[in-house]
Each structure stands twice: as structure tokens, then as C-alpha cells.
């Protein structure tokens, strides 16, 4: 056995040295290479998963936002229609009021003018009656003097 070991150059110090070498290498690689690489892979996996989740959420949000926007636009349209209708109605009633007012004013002006004309006529009649009376008196005086 000893001859066999000697033939292959087996020596206990060398064997122990190689065992120690392997242990050192394994510990060093574990902390310098395996763990950081695995951590990076894991971190990226989580990030990707988070990204997919975010994208899903964004899609969901987008669809709800679309629905909300549609509802809002519909509401706005309805409201606008209402506003236009009420404005139109108001405008109609305002017109009627103005026309009525104008009618009333025209009527009152006409009545006024009529009254004034009648009064003028009556006044002129009275005045002419007075004139006639005065002329008659003058004529009577002249007749008496002569």
C-alpha cells in the first residue's frame, strides 16, 4: 500500500492541502459568485413579476377610466342638452313677454293718442262755440248801436 501511494505521489500534506484548497475555493465562490448571482437573478425575477402586476393593474385602471370617461361625456351631453333646451324655452318666453309688452305699449299709445285727439276736438269745438257766441254778441251790439 505504501509503495502504491509512493508510486502515485500520494502524500498526506499534499492531500490535506488540496482539501483546504477546495474548502477555501468553495467558501470564496459561494460568497463572491454564487450568492450575488443568485440574488441578482431573484431580484430581477421579482422585478419582472412586479412589472407584470403593474401592467395588469394599469390595464384595469385604463379600462375603468375609459368607462368613467364615457359616463362623464354622456352626462355632460345630457346636461348640455338640458341647458340648451332651457335656454331656448327661456328665450321663447322672453320673446312672448317682449311682444306682449310691445303690444300693450302700442295699445296704450294708441289709446292715448285717441284720447288726446278727442280732447283736442272737444276743445276746439268749445273754443269755436265760444267764438261764435262772442261774434254773436258783437253782432248784436253792433245792431243795437245802429
Amino acid at each position: 500500500m505504501a509503495a502504491l501511494f509512493a508510486a502515485f505521489g500520494l502524500q498526506l500534506p499534499l492531500l490535506i492541502a488540496q482539501l483546504v484548497n477546495f474548502a477555501i475555493l468553495m467558501i470564496a465562490l459561494t460568497y463572491l459568485l454564487y450568492k450575488p448571482v443568485m440574488k441578482t437573478i431573484e431580484a430581477r425575477k421579482q422585478k419582472v413579476a412586479q412589472g407584470v402586476l403593474d401592467a395588469e393593474e394599469a390595464t384595469k385602471k385604463l379600462s375603468t377610466a375609459d368607462a368613467e370617461a364615457t359616463v362623464t361625456v354622456q352626462q355632460a351631453e345630457k346636461e348640455a342638452e338640458g341647458i340648451v333646451a332651457s335656454a331656448r324655452e327661456e328665450a321663447g318666453s322672453e320673446k312672448m313677454r317682449i311682444v306682449k309688452e310691445a303690444d300693450a305699449r302700442a295699445a296704450s299709445i294708441a289709446a292715448d293718442a285717441d284720447a288726446r285727439a278727442k280732447e283736442t276736438a272737444a276743445k276746439s269745438l268749445r273754443e269755436s262755440e265760444k267764438e261764435i257766441a262772442r261774434l254773436a254778441i258783437l253782432a248784436a251790439e253792433k245792431a243795437m248801436r245802429t
Partner: peptide, 21 residues
């Protein structure tokens, strides 16, 4: 063996520090 160890550990050291997302 020592040379191999030095190469591997040096590579691991520099590579492990330069890991990027």
C-alpha cells in the same frame, strides 16, 4: 491548483461586484 484558485476567485470577485440588473 493555486493558480486556478487565484483565477477563479479573482474572476468571482470582479464579476460579483459588477453584477447589473
Amino acid at each position: 491548483t493555486w493558480l486556478v484558485m487565484v483565477l477563479l476567485i479573482a474572476f468571482a470577485y470582479f464579476f460579483g461586484r459588477s453584477l447589473k440588473m
